[in-house]
Simulated scan of single mutants.
Amino acid sequence: MLPCSFGTGGDGVTGQGHGWEGMQWQEWKHVEVIRWRLEQGADPDDLNGSRPLHQAVMSGSPQVVMELALRVADVDALQDGTTALWEAVMENQPDSARALVAAGADPWRQLIAGWSPGRLSLAGPTPNLFTIPDGQQGLSDTERAAVHQARQLLAVLKDIHYEGLGLVCVAGIDAPEAIRRLQAIPVEGSRLHALQKPSWGEDLRTVGVTTVPGGCIVTQPWGYAPQMPGVQKLLSAGTSCYGLYANAKSGDQGSIARNGTIEDWDLIPGGDLDPEDTPTSEDVLQHYLYRHNAVAYACAWAGLHLTDTHAVFGPPDTWVDLPERDYWHS
């Protein structure tokens, strides 16, 4: 008996044609189900325009990855500019990566900004995943330093819950300078006491400001105010900053301001890397190191070094009220 029933729709359906109709997310983990699908005529190379092997890496088991890898026409076929092996490294799936290499995948094929899956793995938790051939470039001193910094930062920001959080990480200025630029007023009296344990629904004009090594963080655990364009423009004069709002409905939203100008908006910090955006070598490494941790990504982008989480979640160095103005169009 097969371990999963075959539905024809509903939540979690990933296959819509080519023999994968009604495929559920959980079924990708069962090699018996995948083998049955393939024996019934499912196309190992086509999942409604995407590639089943890539889907198996993202959602399946190493056994499923191996089953598909031995049946596809090209184990290194591209989807959105990357191979299944690249995705296995990105998603920290070493057993699936080994299965792909055993089926003929090339760890040292350069894909994005000079990075190959093999070289990228040198920056990850399993640097000995692949045998390094003679003459193959390893990590540079700068890249090794970035890996070291990432491990320290992620150790501080491990397993954090940040839904609803807004913050902006500012390079090169401290909290007093940030407060001066914002013309913000320190909170005092009974309101200051109440903010020691802030709750959802606090005033959106109120933000926390904290000096950290490398710069400062302006935070609001309950809202989006720090990421508003007007706030970032004021803070980024002569420097740069990365804003983040962890929107509970639409996901993490990132933005970049430099020298008083919004440079980029609607980014996905710690999310998928789009090869069509022509990322730099540094971009690729940053996305890999901080994948699925938007707060750490924002801090690293601005070159901030945290030793604890109080700059992000409070209590900050100073709670302040932003002056009344249009921060969306200023």
Results as ranks from 00 to 15, higher is better:
C4G: 02
G7D: 03
D11I: 10
G12Y: 06
G12A: 02
V13K: 14
W20S: 04
I34R: 09
R35P: 01
W36V: 15
R37H: 11
L38Q: 10
L38E: 08
N48Y: 14
H54T: 03
V57R: 08
V57E: 05
S59K: 10
E67N: 02
E67Q: 03
Q79F: 13
T83C: 09
A88G: 01
A88C: 01
N92D: 15
N92H: 15
N92Y: 13
S96M: 10
A102W: 00
Q110H: 02
R119W: 11
R119C: 07
T126L: 03
P127K: 11
I132H: 10
R144F: 08
Q152P: 00
A155Y: 12
H161A: 14
V168T: 04
C169P: 06
V170C: 01
I179S: 08
R180M: 06
R181K: 03
A184R: 03
H193Q: 13
H193E: 14
L195R: 00
G201P: 05
D203T: 01
V209S: 03
T211D: 05
G214Y: 06
G214R: 09
W222K: 02
G223D: 08
A225I: 01
K233S: 07
A237K: 15
N247F: 04
A248P: 14
G251H: 09
D252T: 13
I262D: 08
D264C: 08
W265H: 10
W265R: 12
D266Q: 14
L273E: 08
L289K: 14
A296Y: 14
A302L: 14
T307L: 13
T309P: 09
H310T: 14
A311K: 13
V312R: 12
F313A: 13
P315S: 09
L322A: 02
D326L: 07
